[in-house]
Design a protein around this nucleic acid. Structure first.
Lengths: 120, 120
DNA sequence: GCTTGACTTCGAGTGCGCTCGAACTGGAAC
DNA sequence: GTTCCAGTTCGAGCGCACTCGAAGTCAAGC
């Protein structure tokens, strides 16, 4: 599929897709006879995984590192697993943090509600 | 307390504290005779609340809006509550998203573990 | 009374992750 | 066969949230 079709599927722009390739997050994508990118389903799967990593706050730098490891094949499985485990821990910590902050938010909402009722 | 003491307490830099003031996230802080900022406990409380909002991903733009409302007193309580409720919903959505992404992470970790064992 | 060091303001610089404009190319539709 | 459109590369620009350098001021300690 074309760059714009792939962009549509993964929810990124064509700009971003080309930039990801340039940044080494994606292997050079196959081209047709006219030099236009042709994305395979595997390319899209990979991009979807990358969007998950980005969404969880993984820096592009780390995603590049992960992409490099993936390119090197099975011998980097352990390292890739370690990278994901470390990231999982960060995501868990982030969720805890958000849940803590949620308490403050709820407390404030409650207080504002009470103050509003007192003003009547 | 001084700007560096306040920075220490809220976990921001002195640069950021001055910048927050300049950006209107904080009311102009009291000054001593030499023109140096003197932070009160209430100033610090306010800053701590701001850090919670930032940490949950609220843009500085929205924090400024909130600060403006707070400055206007009780008549903006309803609007402030609405702002917090909307933000709470975003935080809840973000947590759900992270939990979804966590599943992918765990799935990958599991797969890598299995592949590693198969290679032995 | 001089040094030190934490403060002041101002504007410029940084890092991240895109986002875009310009100039060009090549296949498809009429 | 010309128009059109989606693609190409390249480098520049942007928005956000800080972060810092420079030049100056002032109170406190020796």
């Amino acid at each position: 599929m074309t760059v714009s079709e792939a962009a549509e599927r993964v929810g990124l722009t064509t700009y971003t897709l080309r930039w990801y390739e340039q940044e080494g997050l994606v292997e050079p994508v196959d081209r047709d006879s006219a030099g236009r990118r042709r994305y395979s389903d595997q390319d899209v799967d990979w991009l979807v995984l990358l969007t998950r990593l980005r969404r969880t706050g993984m820096p592009v730098r780390d995603m590049r590192r992960y992409a490099e490891l993936a390119r090197q094949g099975d011998r980097t499985l352990g390292e890739r697993r370690a990278l994901f485990e470390a990231h999982r821990d960060r995501v868990l910590a982030r969720i805890s943090e958000l849940e803590e902050d949620l308490k403050v938010l709820n407390y404030k909402i409650d207080i504002y509600g009470k103050m509003e009722r007192e003003l009547l």
